[in-house]
Simulated assay, not measured.
Amino acid sequence: MKTGIVKDKRYLEHRTGDFHPETHKRLKVIYEMLEEVDMAGKFVEVPVRRAERDELLMIHSGRYVDLVAATDGKPHCSLDPDTSTSPGSYEAALLAAGGLCQAISMVISGELDNAFALVRPPGHHAERDRAMGFCLFNNVAIGARYAKESHNLKRILIVDWDLHHGNGTQHSFEEDDSILYFSTHQYPFYPGSGAFEQAGKGKGEGFTVNVPLPAGYGDGEYLEIFEKILKPVALEFEPELILVSAGIDIYMDDPLGGMRVTPGGFAGLTRSVMDISNECCDGKFVITLEGGYNLQGLSDSVKEILKEMAGLATIDKGLILGRADQNRLDRLIKHVARVHGGSWKGLIASP
């Protein structure tokens, strides 16, 4: 497999302060892992570019883009109680969105089989007109709209397994039936959105699938949700491209989370998405990094994801599924089917 990676030292120039969880050290440990003997030379580096203003405006307002641009070179600007900038933050944010768009282009064109954008700042909380939850520009939303407008794709699936609900991504597409947003997230938790019944609006009704979870879900439960809920919906939707907002904050020892996913569990989720993409869209999928704040867990989990993507390893999904708590899952799947069974036929039979 030709797996691309988006990496650039300028992403480390977004400095959030010594005690902020979304630190530049997150990418530092990942980039160091890529130099290990079993990883070095195994991936294609994607040429990084800045996002164009017109690309940002597909998701964000001009006023907001100007607000973030005005922070360029300034020592410290607070955009949100959790979100601030440093002199290099605007440049990093442009490169994060632009790097993801470049990876998407290379996967759509067939230059790459798949790709992982190892970028920061993250993006899925960023709204049309404001920063939020460590995020400046909504990278995955910009990438999805870019794929539609620049490559004439008709249907795109966004899978968000971050610990936190991607409120900005949902709001970007909740009235759009061409971009399906699927999210698993700890609930109730920051940012407070993502209930089962938030299922889209107007012609986009049914095209937002939220799976809110209590704390304590691990590898087996997550993979079963992907196999029993995501897969039937995705196969019916038939996306031409799959984008993944990969939050590593569902890792078992993440300081901000309460989930129990191991590095092997991340490999299982990746394999599940790969299997879906192989059935729907010739294997075309691109991952972008969102959260994840345990540095060792972040490095170990990204490593397992990349090994799966590149065909360096193949996880046995059956072994992971055997560890799932079926009682908890049956109730959950039935709830999703009650909300979405009228939109997606495959969910009716799943419970």
Rank of each mutant, 00 (worst) to 15 (best):
Q198C: 08
I305V: 14
I248P: 02
S301C: 08
R145G: 06
V68W: 05
H20F: 07
M1E: 13
N114Q: 07
D113Q: 12
F116Y: 12
L100R: 01
R338I: 00
Y11M: 07
V6D: 08
H164K: 03
G268Q: 10
E127P: 01
G73E: 10
L295N: 06
I59Q: 05
A337I: 02
Y90A: 10
D282L: 15
K25G: 00
M1D: 13
E111S: 14
E127S: 10
Q186F: 04
C77H: 11
E290D: 03
H125S: 00
E45I: 13
V261T: 06
S193F: 13
L329P: 02
G73A: 13
V233P: 01
V37L: 12
I333A: 04
L57W: 00
A93G: 05
G133I: 10
E238A: 13
A126M: 09
M132H: 02
V244W: 00
N167G: 12
H151F: 11
T23I: 12
D8P: 00
M1Y: 06
K303R: 11
V6M: 08
Q326R: 11
S277E: 04
N278D: 14
V29R: 04
G297R: 06
V336P: 01
D18I: 13
S86G: 08
V37G: 11
C281P: 08
R53G: 03
V46L: 08
Q198L: 15
R50A: 14
S343N: 13
W161V: 13
L347W: 01
I333W: 01
G143Y: 01
F134V: 10
E22V: 09
M274K: 12
R331H: 13
Q186R: 11
I108N: 03
H164A: 07
G220Q: 09
R120H: 03
E205R: 14
K284Y: 08
D330A: 15
T169Y: 04
V233G: 03
L235P: 01
F196D: 12
A115Q: 03
G41W: 03
G4E: 08
Y181G: 03
F285R: 05
E308P: 07
D72V: 10
P81Y: 12
F266K: 08
D54M: 12
S109T: 15
R155G: 04
D80N: 09
A324P: 02
K9Y: 12
A40L: 14
P191F: 06
K28T: 15
A313D: 13
A337W: 03
G341V: 04
G268P: 00
I179W: 03
E22L: 06
G292Q: 05
P191I: 08
I59M: 04
V302C: 14
D300N: 11
G257V: 04
E111R: 12
P75Q: 10
A70N: 13
D113F: 06
K2I: 12
E221M: 11
G62V: 06
Y90L: 08
S301E: 02
K201E: 15
G258Y: 07
F285S: 09
A195R: 15
R323E: 15
L230E: 06
Y146Q: 03
E175K: 14
T83C: 09
G220C: 10
N278E: 15
L329D: 10
D129G: 12
